[in-house]
Structures are given as structure tokens and as C-alpha cells.
């Protein structure tokens, strides 16, 4: 590993839905589970509220990775919000790939309010993955 790669600490924006994932992140805290400080959660009412524009804006403002989290299928407080999230993320990943940005920089996960451990695990995994990928070409 070169000096530069070692010193790289990714910045990760996590969009969390109010009803499941943010509660999951909260629970991770209550359980005293450690997760990387690189992950910065932003609470939204539903993962379906996350416009692709928000995701792209996060990248533009210097995020190296964006994590979109919502309720499991069938658990959405607004019935179908997370289905539309998954469709959007799929199309957006394909588009990112087409313009030469690693699609892995965008990740969607379903995290329930009781899954504090999952939130911490995903945060670890994703941070490691982005650290390996290096800084985002969209930075700046």
C-alpha cells in the first residue's frame, strides 16, 4: 500500500429512512456498537423520498460513497416507497457505470429498526469497500 492510499479516509453519506433505518442506526448507538465515523447519516422520512438528485449532489459535494437505506420489503411505512427506491438505485447504478464511475459507490440496504448490528456491519463493510476503491472521481 502506498502512503497516499493509507491516508485516504472516505466520506460516506448514508440516507436513512425515518421509520426503520434511522431507528436501526440509533439502536447501533444504544447497543454501544462501534461503526466507522466516515458514515454520516441523513434522516429522510422514507427512502422513496431520496431523489436521485440528492445522491448525485452528495457525490458532487465530495462524498466517496452513498448508502441508501430503507425498510425491508413489505415493511415500508408508506407501503411501496422502498420498491421505488430499489428501482431508482438500480437504474442510477447502471448509469454511473456507463459514465465511468464505479457503481459500487452507491449501495442500497434494507435495515429494520431492530437491526442495529446490521447497520454497524453494513457501515464497516461499505467503508472498507470505498477505502479500497479510493477517492471518488466525482469529488470537487
Amino acid at each position: 500500500m502506498t502512503q497516499k492510499e493509507e491516508s485516504f479516509e472516505p466520506k460516506i453519506i448514508a440516507f436513512c429512512c425515518n421509520w426503520c433505518s434511522y431507528a436501526g442506526a440509533d439502536l447501533a448507538g444504544s447497543m454501544r456498537l462501534k461503526y466507522p465515523p466516515n458514515v454520516l447519516p441523513i434522516r429522510v422520512m422514507c427512502s422513496g423520498r431520496i431523489s436521485p438528485h440528492f445522491v448525485m449532489k452528495a457525490f458532487q459535494k465530495g462524498a466517496d460513497g452513498v448508502l441508501v437505506t430503507g425498510c425491508h420489503y413489505g415493511d415500508c411505512h408508506y407501503m411501496k416507497g422502498n420498491y421505488i427506491t430499489m428501482r431508482r438505485v438500480t437504474i442510477l447504478k447502471d448509469l454511473l457505470k456507463f459514465v465511468g464511475v464505479e457503481p459500487k459507490r452507491l449501495r442500497a440496504e434494507w435495515i429494520a429498526g431492530s437491526e442495529g448490528d446490521k447497520f454497524a456491519r453494513v457501515a464497516h463493510e461499505f467503508t472498507d469497500e470505498i477505502r479500497n476503491l479510493g477517492p471518488s472521481p466525482l469529488r470537487g
Partner: peptide, 19 residues
């Protein structure tokens, strides 16, 4: 358009995600 309308097909998820 499944990105804009959540009708009776509202519970459909993408067929595959290729990374």
C-alpha cells in the same frame, strides 16, 4: 413507467443487478 407509477405492479423489484 415503473419509476413514476406504483399501480398494481407496485411490488415489482428489478430483475437483476449487475455490478
Amino acid at each position: 413507467d415503473p419509476l413514476e407509477f406504483l399501480g398494481s405492479e407496485g411490488y415489482m423489484v428489478p430483475s437483476k443487478i449487475d455490478e
